[in-house]
Structure formats: structure tokens, C-alpha cells
Design a protein around this nucleic acid. Structure first.
Length: 857
RNA sequence: GCCCGAGUGGUGAAAUUGGUAGACACGAGGGACUUAAAAUCCCUUGACAGCGAUGUCGUGCCGGUUCGAGUCCGGCCUCGGGCACCA
């Protein structure tokens, strides 16, 4: 038996490929292109574990296939290296983040190189490289020019442990995603990107991405969270002067059709209305106390305590319902959020669960105004039947004119609310007690109400999004400096493009101040500068950009990594963009992938790129769990380093095993036994060289059964790779190997074709065998074998014979057997006869090339 | 609570438009080779009954459509993911 020495072989070929520039990207634009991209890693201090390369292996196999099929393939790698994890690591270990980053990248790269990826390392990028972040800053300035980047003074989310402001996307369950601390609200100056301006396009264009996974699109839709409804103006009146309208307070509602059912009005504890009217509020002390209590609660507590709603009635003020002039009591309650809509709502307890709960607790009137069904008691059968009142049974089809029917619906609604509170939830139905909306169905009533409000100037159609503008500044050191100078005379002035990159100063101390000031603020020689506009004294912006800045556009730079004049050459972008296939973790669905789509659309708007969406096809990679079923983590001590696996079993075994584990996007637990299986599979292939040793090149095509199987395998492997079904591709190759092993001799041609289709999975061992067979050119310069459609046709098939759908016999017949012959053979089968002997044959069903089913009674 | 997705052997899993359920692999059991072990090779391996041929049952549960359902429809249950007082 030959002994396969993976260590020697893998090293040999990795050096040779590197020396020959085998993976250098071709710029021959006459060929079709394919841009296949991994989400570039964040080089942490911990190095890669075996789960990380899973996606990289998949894209590598795909890239190699595409290259062998004649495409110009762009398959690059780089480093997303700015941000808190490195900075915290650096503080802890007392090394400068720059040094730590360089060290971590070195570790990561060494790990990746051992696995034998076909990356074009000449295009390697690093977000912390000034030549790279020059363009991150440039894009920021372009946004600033267009008012998309602006300074805001609204309170933001602050992580006391990371000592920085965060964006909505940086939270996980209301806590800091990075350190799991409870976050606070902190009023401070910050830079914000107006991503909400793009919310509608980000949502609508998801429909233009058919090759994105459904689940990820769904997550983005939920995150953007579009609601359509109306803004309605309520007058706020001081009870002492009922005829004097103080102000108009707007509310947002998705259900303007239920305006007649509003029985109270609520404002968020942070709402300015309260302090503006403090003199009108007779119980201001009580209200103020509630506001303080609510303010002391973190966002976490506020949502966790959602079982019991709290609030305080504001005495001395009422809100006037614009549709009927009714006076509504006003409450302050923390179930209404300042950050969504207008921070004030009309409450319709009969048709909203939350309002219902609150109204019950504080004894507020619950007034139903719509319902959809009636119940009838059948005395003889003693049953209660529920009948939905449907539009067709009603007059013209869309409006109930019958007063009696409406009054029955009203009685039913009242009955249901008294009986079972769960009936009180928002429901669609026919309206009553609603003035001009009486008799209409809710959906139409909504439109009628919007039209009415608009006409009277009391409101208008409105859209609200859950997505918030992107808080874009961090009060930390390790990030891109924001290229702005503050001048007392001129305000915030952009650093001129010619001065980019604005380099991050190299300093000894970069500890966060914790006060909301960036560590950069402590370096006077850096902070103090001239105003680019007036030349007077100016101070540099000291906040830095968040970790997600560079990753929002990095993929473009791979196309043109060394361009000094532009972010990307528009012609090169035209050829290579968009990314044809993007593979990475699902955890980026609502952060990186939304940010990148936003930046890309912006770059498109300013004419910097040609296409509106950056990623055509998107696939998420399933996690690899530890053997104990938990996540691999230092904390559990169950991390497996790919270096150890490569050392012991070889990179090819690792690659084949990770692709064979199960469906690509599913998470699976690591199994060393399974890995050993992959290694054995490769050894068997290596040892098969014996059987081919004496064969002449191109000689002996092999038996027809083997040829048939070979061509079926070529077809299946090619198709499965394109669909990311690597597990079944490998299984097909295993079936072929099992069959080849049973042969005394293997044709050289068959063996070589098989090696080529295996090569993307196991590049080292196949290249070694390939060269050992006397081939001087790399196996990766071969073109992907074509299967012969004639050869994969089966002449004989196993025809299944069923009786009443149950398998009773299988008989080998000609593949193109006629219906008549098939039925005849089926009925003559001894096994079948046993089951139809004493029965009447009702019919016989024939499915060509598959089966005969005899139906008997 | 709301929105997605998924439930198949001891395990990871396969299964064109509805057409042989469990491919392929791991594990387990048995055997060959060996002084012995490892490695390798061969056989068995969904459950139940049977010496066997074979039969019955079987894709989370209940029901339906169909000659025929893992696959389609209706109603549940469980698990995973996302969002979470978003008006």
C-alpha cells in the first residue's frame, strides 16, 4: 500500500501554486466573469476554529469549478480589523492595537494558507490600512455633502462597559451585543447616517433579489419594519380654559379607521408635552415622579416588565378627538416609546391588546366600533355556530346599509369583550358607531378616514419605519477618524479630499475616557488645526467610525485594490460587479448586509458604481458546533484549531469532511470520527493508482457500467456544486469510488476525469496524483469534463410493481418498455399473482420508466 | 406574543414534477488477515414476527385528497432562528 504523506504533499503544492501564480486573477475581460466572495473575517486574538473555514471551503470549491469551466474568477480575501474587540484586547494585553492587529492577521493568514485556498492574495485588503480607509472617509464626506451624515444631539444608547455610544443594530435583546452589559440612554453629540432615507428602497429592492435566501430577506423586512397608516392631529386643551386650544399634538396610527373607538390618549414619559404644560397639569408632582421612575429604568427593564403596564393620568389636560370632538383623558405611560412615531398615541382599547390591558387596569372606557361575525344558538342541536358576515352577503358588496345588522354586530362585539378579553384584540370587521364610516369594512374605512382627515387638514397618510438612523460615531480610538473640523465661525467643515487619508494618530495612551469624549480629544497637537474654510483656529472631530464602516463597501475594493484616484474604477466595476455570490454567517443579516446595501445604493446615487444592489446571490453558512453540541468557545474549552486537524489528517481531509457533514446552511456538531472517514476515502483514491499503473494515456475506456456511472457522477457533481449541495456531490463520488475499487483495472481516462471533478474538494492530493500520472500541467488548468448524455441513459431499469400502491415485486426490463408489455409482465409476476388471485382488477396504472400499479378490490 | 424555518434509523443525513423511504457516511455487531493489536478487507445493521422464504408496521401527532403521500391540503404538538409594548 502506498503511504500518503499529506504534510509533504500539501506543502509542496502550496509552494508551487504560489510560485506559479496559479490563482492570480485574470483581467481578460472578453471572458465571462464570476465574483465569488466570503464575508472577510475579523482577526480576533483567538485565531480561527474549524467552524470558520466552512464557508471559505465552499466558495473555494465553487471558484475552482467556475475557473475550470472557463470563467474569469475573482476570489479575494481581506481583513475587517478596526473596532472594539481588538482595542479591548490591546488594552488588556498592553499592546498597541496596530501591533495586535498585525499579529492577529498574521495568525489568521497562516491558518488559511494551510487549508489551500485559491485566493488571489495580491488583492488582499485591510480596513485599517490608510490607503483603504482613505476611501471610507471619502464616502463619509460625500454623505456629509448630501446631508446624509449629520450631527445629532438626541440621547443615544450608551454602553457603560465599552464606554461608547452604539447603534440599534449593536444591541442583542436590549443588551450590548459585545459585552452583554445593560445599556443606558445618554444625551450626547453624535454623528448619524440617514439610513432611514433609504428605508423604502432597501425594502422594495429585496424583491429584486430572487437568489437571496428567503429567511434573510424576511429578517431584513422585519428589521426595516414598514408600517403604513396616518398621522392625526389631536388638540390639547387645558381644562380650565375649555375653549382655548393650546396646541395640536400629532399621533401616528396604522388604524385610522378606529378613530371613533379611541377612549384615551397616551404620551411617552420623555415627551416634551409634559414639561411644556407643567403649569396646566394639576398633579404635576405625581406625573414627574412617574417620569423619573420610567427614566431610571433601562430599556431592558422597560421591555422585560411588559406583563404589567403602568401609567399616570395627567390631570388638567384633555385631548380632543378630531373626528367627533370627544374629550379624551391623557395618560403618561412607558408602554409608549418616544423613539417611534411621534411618541404619542390614541388608544383604542377595544381593538388593541396593549390598550385593552391598560384600560382594564385603569378602568377606562372600552368602546368597540367594529366586528366581523355573529353567533347563532341552534336550540334543537344545542350548538353555537359562528357566521362571518361576508361582503357578498351585504348590499352592494362592500358596505352594510342594514342598521339592524350593524346593531347586531355591535351587540356581538360587546358580548365578546365582556366574555373573553382575547376577543378585544385588533380585528378586521364592519364599522358601527363611527359616523361617516358606519357600514364600511375596516380596510375601506381606513382609506375613507385618511381622505377625510386630509381634506379637513386634520391629518394625512404616513409611513413609519422601525429602522433607526445609524449612529455612526464611537468614542473610542481604534477606528477611522471622522474627517471633519469644527470651526467656531464656520461650523462643521469637511477635511478637503486632498488631505485624505486623515490618519489615525499613533499614540501611547488610547484608553476610553468614559465621559463621552474620544481618547483622541486628549491629543492637542492632533485636535488643534486650521479651519479648511476660513483658515482660523479649528478643532478636529475626535470621534471615530464604528466597526461596520469599512465592511460596508470593502468588496468593491477587491476589484481595484490599489487605485489611488478613486474608490473604484467605474469601468472595472462595470465588468466585475455585482458580487455574483456572497457567502457568510446569518448573524450579519440585519447589520452588515443592511449597511452594505445602504452604502452601495448611496455610491450608486453619486455615480461611483454601476449597479444598485451589491450582492446577486446570498447564502448563509451553518455553524459547526463542538462535539459536545455547544458553540465552540474558549469559555467551554472545546475549540478545535484547524492547524491541528491539517497537521494530523491533512487539509484535503478537513475540506472533504466539512463539506460532507450535512446540508451547507445547517448547523452540525463536529465529529472526529467523520473526519477520519473523509481521510480514508482519500487514501482509497490514492491507492487506486495501482490499478491504473499500466494503462496507456487515453487507453481503455472501461466497462460500459463504469462509464455510465462516471458520466452520471460528472453531471451530479457539477450540478450539486452550483447548488451548494456538497454533501450529495461527495456521496456521488463515494459511490463511484466504491464501484471503481471492485474493478480489476481502471481506465486511465476514467481515473483522470474523476480526479478532475474531485480536485476542487481535495486540491492537494488530486494535484499530486495527477502529476504522478505524468501530467506536467496543473490539474486546475484542465477544463471541467463534459458528461455524455448518451452514456448516462440507462438501457435497463428496475421496474417496480405495486398492488394497491404497495411494493410487491421489482423486475428488470428495457428502459423504454411499452405500457402494454409492462402491464403484461406485471400481471404475470408470481409474487403479484399471490395478491390479485381472488380479487377483481379495477385498473392498472403505468408510469413510464418507473412502475406499474395494479388496483384490485 | 408576532414573523420565518424545520421535524425521516443508534448518529449526520439522502430521496426529479406525488411513484422502490433510509442512498452515502459514522457508530455498532460478526468474520478474514495477524503471535497479538492497529491498519485493511468482507458480511449484517429501521422496528416487530419467523429457522427461512416472507409478512406487518414505519418519515412529530390527528384527519383529508389520490391508484399511490416524507412530498399536496386542513388542524395540532415540539424544536431552532429572528423581532419583541413599533401604536
Amino acid at each position: 500500500m502506498l503511504n500518503y504523506n499529506h504534510k509533504e504533499v500539501e506543502k509542496k503544492w502550496q509552494e508551487k501554486w504560489e510560485k506559479d501564480g496559479l490563482y492570480k486573477t485574470s483581467e481578460d475581460t472578453t471572458k465571462p466573469k464570476y465574483f465569488i466572495l466570503d464575508m472577510f473575517p475579523y482577526p480576533s486574538g483567538e485565531g480561527l476554529h474549524v467552524g470558520h473555514p466552512k464557508g471559505y471551503i465552499a466558495t473555494d470549491i465553487f471558484a475552482r469549478l467556475k475557473k475550470m469551466q472557463g470563467y474569469n474568477v475573482l476570489h479575494p480575501m481581506g481583513w475587517d480589523a478596526f473596532g472594539l474587540p481588538t482595542e479591548n484586547y490591546a488594552l488588556k494585553h498592553k499592546v498597541h492595537p496596530r501591533i495586535a492587529t498585525a499579529k492577529n492577521i498574521d495568525t489568521f493568514k497562516k491558518q488559511l494558507l494551510k487549508i489551500g485556498f485559491s485566493y488571489d492574495w495580491e488583492r488582499e485588503i485591510n480596513t485599517t490600512d490608510p490607503e483603504f480607509y482613505k476611501w471610507t472617509q471619502w464616502a463619509f464626506l460625500k454623505m456629509f455633502e448630501r446631508g446624509l451624515a449629520f450631527e445629532s444631539f438626541e440621547p443615544i444608547i450608551w454602553c457603560p462597559s465599552c464606554k461608547t455610544g452604539l447603534s440599534m443594530e449593536d444591541l442583542e435583546g436590549g443588551r450590548c451585543e459585545r459585552c452583554d452589559s445593560e445599556v443606558e440612554r445618554k444625551p450626547m453629540r453624535q454623528w448619524v447616517l440617514r439610513i432611514t432615507d433609504y428605508a423604502d428602497r432597501l425594502l422594495a429592492d429585496l424583491d429584486k433579489l430572487p437568489d437571496w435566501e428567503h429567511s434573510i430577506k424576511e429578517m431584513q423586512r422585519n428589521w426595516i419594519g414598514k408600517s403604513t397608516g396616518a398621522i392625526v392631529k389631536f388638540a390639547i386643551v387645558d381644562c380650565r380654559f375649555p375653549n382655548e386650544k393650546k396646541i395640536e399634538q400629532e399621533i401616528f396610527t396604522t388604524r385610522p379607521d378606529t378613530l371613533f373607538g379611541a377612549t384615551y390618549f397616551v404620551v411617552a414619559p420623555e415627551h416634551p408635552l409634559i414639561s411644556d404644560f407643567r403649569l396646566s397639569i394639576s398633579n404635576f408632582n405625581e406625573v414627574e415622579e412617574y417620569m423619573k421612575k420610567a427614566g431610571a429604568k433601562s430599556d431592558m427593564e422597560r421591555t422585560e416588565l411588559n406583563k404589567e403596564k403602568t401609567g399616570v393620568k395627567i390631570e388638567g389636560l384633555v385631548a380632543i378627538n378630531p373626528v367627533n370632538g370627544e374629550e379624551l383623558p391623557i395618560f403618561v405611560a412607558d408602554y409608549v416609546m418616544m423613539g417611534y412615531g411621534t411618541g404619542a398615541i390614541m388608544a383604542v382599547p377595544a381593538h388593541d391588546e396593549r390598550d385593552f390591558e391598560f384600560a382594564k387596569k385603569y378602568n377606562i372606557k372600552i368602546k368597540p366600533i367594529l366586528h366581523s361575525y355573529l353567533e347563532f344558538w341552534n336550540e334543537s342541536e344545542k350548538t353555537l355556530t359562528r357566521r362571518t358576515v361576508n361582503p357578498t352577503s351585504v348590499n352592494s358588496g362592500n358596505k352594510i346599509e342594514d342598521e339592524e345588522l350593524l346593531s347586531l354586530l355591535k351587540q356581538q362585539a360587546q358580548k365578546d369583550i365582556n366574555k373573553d378579553p382575547s376577543h378585544a384584540i385588533t380585528d378586521y370587521g364592519w364599522l358601527f358607531d363611527s359616523g361617516f364610516l358606519n357600514g364600511y369594512y375596516a380596510i375601506e374605512a381606513k382609506e375613507k378616514m385618511i381622505a377625510w382627515l386630509t381634506e379637513k387638514g386634520l391629518g394625512k397618510r404616513a409611513v413609519n419605519y422601525k429602522i433607526k438612523d445609524w449612529v455612526f460615531s464611537r468614542q473610542r480610538y481604534w477606528g477611522e477618524p471622522i474627517p471633519i473640523v469644527h470651526c467656531e465661525k464656520c461650523g462643521a467643515i469637511p477635511v478637503p479630499e486632498s488631505e485624505l487619508p486623515l490618519r489615525l494618530p499613533d499614540v501611547e495612551h488610547y484608553e476610553p475616557s468614559g465621559t463621552g469624549e474620544s481618547p483622541l480629544a486628549t491629543i492637542p497637537e492632533w485636535v488643534n488645526t486650521k479651519c479648511p474654510k476660513c483658515g482660523g483656529a479649528g478643532k478636529r472631530e475626535t470621534n471615530t467610525m464604528p466597526q461596520w464602516a469599512g465592511s460596508s463597501w470593502y468588496y468593491l475594493r477587491f476589484i481595484d485594490p490599489k487605485n489611488n484616484n478613486a474608490l473604484i474604477d467605474i469601468k472595472k466595476d462595470k465588468y466585475w460587479s455585482p458580487v455574483d455570490f456572497y457567502v457568510g454567517g446569518a448573524e450579519h443579516a440585519t447589520r452588515h448586509l443592511i449597511y452594505a446595501r445602504f452604502w452601495h445604493k448611496f455610491l450608486f446615487d453619486i455615480g461611483a458604481v454601476n449597479y444598485e444592489e451589491p450582492f446577486t446571490r446570498l447564502q448563509h453558512v451553518g455553524l459547526i458546533m463542538a462535539e459536545d453540541g455547544r458553540k465552540m468557545s474558549k469559555r467551554w474549552g472545546n475549540v478545535i484549531n484547524p492547524n491541528d486537524i491539517v497537521e494530523k489528517y491533512g487539509a484535503d481531509a478537513l475540506r472533504v469532511y466539512e463539506m460532507f457533514m450535512g446540508p451547507f446552511s445547517q448547523s452540525v456538531a463536529w465529529s472526529t470520527n467523520g473526519l477520519v472517514g473523509a481521510r480514508k476515502f482519500l487514501e482509497r483514491i490514492y491507492n487506486m493508482q495501482h490499478a491504473t499503473r499500466n494503462m496507456q494515456h487515453g487507453g481503455g475506456a472501461g466497462t460500459s457500467a463504469i462509464l455510465n456511472l462516471l458520466h452520471k457522477t460528472i453531471k451530479k457533481v457539477g450540478e450539486d456544486i452550483l447548488e451548494f449541495k456538497f454533501n450529495t456531490a461527495i456521496s456521488a463520488m463515494m459511490i463511484l469510488v466504491n464501484a471503481l475499487e471492485k474493478e480489476k483495472e481502471i481506465s486511465r481516462d476514467t481515473y483522470e476525469k474523476f480526479l478532475i471533478i474531485l480536485a476542487p474538494f481535495a486540491p492537494h492530493i488530486t494535484e499530486e496524483i495527477w502529476s504522478g500520472l505524468g501530467n506536467s500541467e496543473s490539474i486546475f488548468k484542465q477544463s471541467w469534463p463534459k458528461y455524455d448524455p448518451e452514456l448516462i441513459k440507462d438501457e435497463k431499469i428496475q421496474m417496480v410493481i405495486q398492488v394497491n400502491g404497495k411494493l410487491r415485486d421489482t423486475i428488470e426490463v428495457d428502459a423504454n418498455i411499452s405500457e402494454e408489455d409492462a402491464k403484461k409482465i406485471a400481471l404475470e409476476s408470481e409474487k403479484v399473482k399471490k395478491f390479485i388471485d381472488d380479487k377483481e382488477i379495477m385498473k392498472v396504472i403505468f408510469v413510464g420508466g418507473k412502475l406499474v400499479n395494479v388496483v384490485v378490490k
